[in-house]
Deep mutational scan, measured.
Amino acid sequence: VTVHVDGVEYDFDNPEEALKFAKKVAEDKNGTYEVHGNQIRVT
């Protein structure tokens, strides 16, 4: 699973970890996250 944040890609073997990371980053920057299959984009 790849999490995209501001043009940087973070790869996770564990989808739950990826989702947790995306949620935290989105909260920290008052943004949102979208899941597209095995890609998660934080905006």
Rank of each mutant, 00 (worst) to 15 (best):
V1K: 04
V1Y: 15
V3G: 00
V3R: 00
H4M: 13
H4Q: 09
H4E: 10
V5S: 04
D6M: 09
D6V: 03
D6G: 09
D6L: 06
G7R: 03
G7T: 04
G7S: 06
V8L: 11
Y10K: 03
Y10H: 08
Y10M: 04
D11M: 15
D11I: 15
F12V: 00
F12D: 00
D13R: 08
N14H: 07
P15C: 14
P15D: 09
P15G: 09
E16D: 12
E16H: 07
E16C: 12
E16P: 02
E16K: 08
E17L: 08
A18G: 10
A18T: 00
A18F: 01
A18P: 00
L19P: 03
L19H: 06
L19K: 04
L19M: 08
L19E: 08
K20L: 11
F21K: 03
F21N: 03
F21W: 09
F21I: 03
A22T: 02
A22K: 00
A22E: 02
A22G: 03
A22N: 01
A22P: 02
K23V: 09
K23G: 05
K23C: 09
K23T: 09
K24M: 12
K24L: 10
K24A: 13
V25Q: 11
V25E: 10
V25M: 14
V25L: 12
V25I: 14
V25G: 02
V25N: 05
V25T: 09
A26L: 07
A26Y: 03
A26H: 02
A26C: 13
E27W: 10
D28H: 10
D28S: 13
K29Q: 12
K29A: 11
K29F: 15
N30G: 13
N30M: 08
N30W: 04
N30Q: 09
G31W: 12
G31E: 04
G31N: 03
G31A: 08
T32D: 08
T32L: 09
Y33M: 10
Y33S: 02
E34R: 05
V35C: 12
V35N: 04
H36C: 10
H36T: 12
H36E: 13
H36Q: 13
H36I: 15
H36F: 13
G37R: 04
N38Y: 03
N38I: 05
Q39H: 13
Q39C: 14
Q39R: 09
I40C: 04
I40T: 01
R41Y: 15
V42Y: 00
V42C: 03
T43G: 07
T43L: 14
T43H: 13
